[in-house]
Amino acid sequence: MAQASVVEAQVKEAAQRDRGSGLAARRARIAFLFCLPLILLVVALVIYPAFYSLYLATLNKSMTRFVGLGNFAFLFRRETFWMVVEQSIIFAVSAVIFKALIGFVLAHLLHALPPRGQRAWRGLLLVPWVIPPAMSTLVWWWMYEPSYSALNWLLMGIGFAPVPWLGDPYWARFSVILVNVWYGAPFFMIMYLAALKSVPAELYESAEIDGANAWQKLVYVTLPMLRNIIAITVLFSLIVTFANFDIVRILTAGGPRDMTHVFATYAFKLGIESNDIPLGACVSLFMFPILAVAAVFILRDVHRRSREIAGVSG
């Protein structure tokens, strides 16, 4: 009898398990169906174009013949292409560093404000990020404009010489980076502010009891707690900044003397304006390995850090 009840219990348990796994499978199917529209969009607008551009990059200029990696080999021999690589790196890395620094400082300043004032400032500081960049860049262009620069008008008003914002290659590089920093810093600010709010107040209290000063609290409490979010925002911003098109296109179109081109604007110049679509596709694909390497390093660090936190709390 006892044996029969044990068997009955086992059968019941198995049935429950089956019901559970059936429910899980059904939920997974429903979840998949909910995700399907997004998956289809990603396939249509990201995966397919990515493979199509890979295919285009292997064709000759008139797209009638397969040339393998010939277009890449050709690009590697061009002086202008290496200048674009160098500029893209300077543009993306310096812009991301400044965006992160400014965002970090602004987030701390906002965090220190009382909640009432904080809301208004937060809204105001987010304005550059919510305006479509093509529109705000046009305003910047008006301020930099070679002949009628509003900034130069101000500078001359206070006795300084006008600055060739877009006419001199180095000033032009500075100008496009400045606009990118202005546009992107609020994103860092809001991410860091959210992260700061999630740091437990007890950690600061303990540090204070231990006699830590403000700098030590920043270095030993805030930074370690924000490390993951810093890594992820930097990676995300690096990808977006490397792929930037509108700011450079509107302000300088890559000039003077091609010295402000980044990958996207150079790809557009070659592919669309000069009607060499395979070469343009090659230039745009060149971003992929650079970003993939950056992503591997940064995500590996994030993963390690997450495991450390999980280990500590466990």
Partner: peptide, 21 residues
């Protein structure tokens, strides 16, 4: 020529003439 002529686009010369410069 104007010092910034290197940064000119197709609208710059139009504005130059229209502004009487």
């Amino acid at each position: 020529l104007p010092a910034d002529a290197i940064a000119w686009d197709d609208g710059s010369n139009n504005r130059w003439l229209i502004a009487g410069k």
